[in-house]
């Protein structure tokens, strides 16, 4: 398995280089270094000299990919791409274009994102798996029928509606939790309750339907029939056999998103004023801060690759038949 992991890590390198190149191209197709300078310096009284000074200080005066004014390897090294992207491979994010330490920002802002994402994931899993099991247990009854309708209705509603509706009903009308905001330590709990509950409710519809399908598929298999014919109780069939075997596809979906929990949620963070990494990325895009954008895209890519690797490894843990080689 170790050789498999090493091989996967090596595969990741060209993928990450490709992602860096694509991010770089996409960003600079839309924004020239002059645009970035104007965005940082403002439009009102900015002179060309100031724009040149700004670009020179941050290395944006160099050509994008190839520098014909120098010789040898320097032709590749003395470029914006090389100067800005190579350091990312050792997770040196450097400073934002406005001069702030990106690593520090990430270290500060990942915690609020995690504070929402982790309870959202764990409680959400518990609730949706329980619902899905219940619906599967009552398959082909009115409970199953109405539950599926409710699930479809829940997944058809926009997340934004849940957020605004939740803030209106729970925060404004019932006055049970603050409408928005955040704090550190235990004070954070009252601010997290509503976004977490909304996150769980908005995810119930899609997840429950998916898990229900998985459970129903398992319940129709021969080993379940065998278990029942041997007189095993329905509870034991559901929990000891069906749930256990359904864990493989569930894990596929869950483990892959685990690392991405760091990246936060844009809508939730914006509406609840939670200072996570989702809003950090969008703010950077709006401000044309390439340093932050490329760092966040790179971080997201690395975490996604880690997620895929973890998924593969988790297969071997839940299903002894699978061997990584």
């Amino acid at each position: 398995m170790i050789s498999y992991i090493i091989r996967r890590v090596l595969y990741a390198i060209p993928i990450l280089i490709g992602i860096n190149v694509i991010t770089f191209l996409l960003f600079f197709v839309v924004n020239s270094p002059d645009d970035m300078a104007m965005s940082q310096l403002g439009q009102k009284y900015t002179t060309e000299q100031q724009i040149e000074d700004w670009k020179r200080e941050r290395g944006y005066h160099l050509p994008l990919f190839h520098n014909p004014s120098v010789t040898g390897m320097a032709q590749l090294q003395e470029t914006i791409f090389y100067q800005k992207s190579v350091r990312l491979f050792v997770f040196d994010f450097g400073s934002s274009d406005s001069g702030r330490d990106i690593s520090y920002d990430i270290s500060q802002r990942m915690w609020p994102s995690l504070a929402i994402a982790i309870p959202n994931l764990l409680v959400g899993l518990l609730v949706t798996i329980s619902f899905a099991l219940l619906i599967a247990f009552f398959r082909a009854t009115y409970i199953d029928y109405w539950s599926v309708i409710i699930c479809v209705a829940l997944m058809s509603i926009s997340t934004l509606f849940y957020i605004i509706g939740g803030q209106f009903v729970v925060g404004k009308l019932m006055r049970i939790v603050p409408i928005s905001g955040y704090d550190i330590g235990l004070e954070a709990i009252k601010f997290l309750l509503l976004p977490v509950i909304i996150g769980i409710i908005s995810g119930i519809g899609a997840s429950t339907r998916w898990y229900r399908t998985i459970f129903l598929e398992e319940m129709n298999k021969d080993y379940v029939r065998t278990a029942r014919s041997k007189g095993v109780s329905e509870t034991r069939v559901m929990f000891a056999h069906v749930l256990r075997n359904a864990m493989i596809p569930i894990l596929t979906g869950v483990v892959v998103v685990l690392p991405l929990l760091f990246m936060g949620s844009l809508l939730t963070e914006n509406f609840f004023g939670i200072p996570g990494l989702g809003s950090y990325t969008i703010d950077a895009i709006n401000r044309q801060d390439f340093a932050i954008v490329r760092s966040m895209v790179y971080l997201g890519s690395v975490l996604y690759i880690i997620g895929l690797l973890l998924t593969d490894i988790s297969y071997t843990l839940v299903d002894p038949r699978i061997r990584l080689s």
Partner: peptide
């Protein structure tokens, strides 16, 4: 000064006296 990115939560909190 609290971070408040959207106008709707701001307005509701103003109406609550916050």
């Amino acid at each position: 000064f609290s971070l408040e990115k959207e106008s709707i939560p701001y307005w509701n909190k103003f109406m609550q006296g916050y």
